[in-house]
Structure formats: structure tokens, C-alpha cells
Amino acid sequence: MNRVCIVGVGSPSGDDQAGWLTVDALLDLGIRSGDGVVIEKLDRPGSALIPLLRSTAWLIVVDAMQGEGEAGQIQRFDETGWPHYGHGLSSHGLGVIDALMLAGELGSLPPRLDLYGIEIAGTTPGSSPGRAIRAAATRLAAMISDQLASGFSIPPGTQPGYG
């Protein structure tokens, strides 16, 4: 029940690879799936995100976002401040926030959840991600790696659940 799960969400469309690039950068830093750590790249997982929360104490999700900031800007959200979004970023019905909200209703969220958004610009299918996105992914991976190195603790009395 003390697993750390790191998920990079993305698609092959330009800057939408931000989450995948972050996972690549973490792998370059030597973070690997193994004892107590699961690290995965997912392509718009929808509700398939929820089973991953089983036995997870700390979930780190990195996804592309389109907000007010400049491309490459990183934002961290905790459970009290998940971003609201309109339709248009995900062509599938259940986006990452929807899946996390559904998990919340089912009492399946882990004790710690860090959601990172990397501001993106272009999402042309088949295009390469921009330089700012690559740099942001590298920065974010270093930050996550530092946090993993310093460890974490589960707040007393909170145990992750999964139905």
C-alpha cells in the first residue's frame, strides 16, 4: 500500500507529448518501475486510470494543459485545486480530471496526489513537441526526482482504497 505511481499522459500530437517526455526524462534520471514504484506513459487513459490507483499511496500525474500561461509553464494542482476545463482538449468522454473525480466519488484516491500540468501550444498530429515543452519536461522530471529522493509519508488514518 505504499506504492508510488507516476503517470505521463499524452498523445503523439506535438506538445501533447509533454507527459510522455517527462516520463522519458525520469527514466534518463534512473527512475525505473520496480519495488514500490510504477512509472507509465498512457495515451488518454480515461477510466483505465482508476485501476492504477490500487495499492497506490502517492500518485503523480503529468499531463498537457492549455491555460493562460506561456508554453512550457509548469503548474502543480492538489486535490483542492484541480483545474476546471471546458470541452475540447480531449475527444474522449472521460478526461484525466473526470477520471480522478470519479475515483474520488468511489473513495479510490490515494492519500497523496500531485497533478502537474505543462502549458502547451501546438498539438498538430505528427508534429514534434516544441523546445519549451522539452525543457519543461526535463525541469519537472528533476523536481519529481528530488521529491522521490526525499521520500514521503502517508497522513495517519488515511489509507488508499479501491473498490
Partner: peptide, 18 residues
């Protein structure tokens, strides 16, 4: 939506996801 459904029928939604 399904999130609201999970509020009133959580066991059924969990079963569906499984």
C-alpha cells in the same frame, strides 16, 4: 454523468469498472 451516478450507485460503478 458517471461521477454523479457513482455518488448514488458506487458499488455498481465499481463493479462496472472492474
Amino acid at each position: 454523468n458517471a461521477i454523479e451516478l457513482a455518488r448514488i450507485a458506487p458499488e455498481e460503478v465499481r463493479r462496472g469498472l472492474r
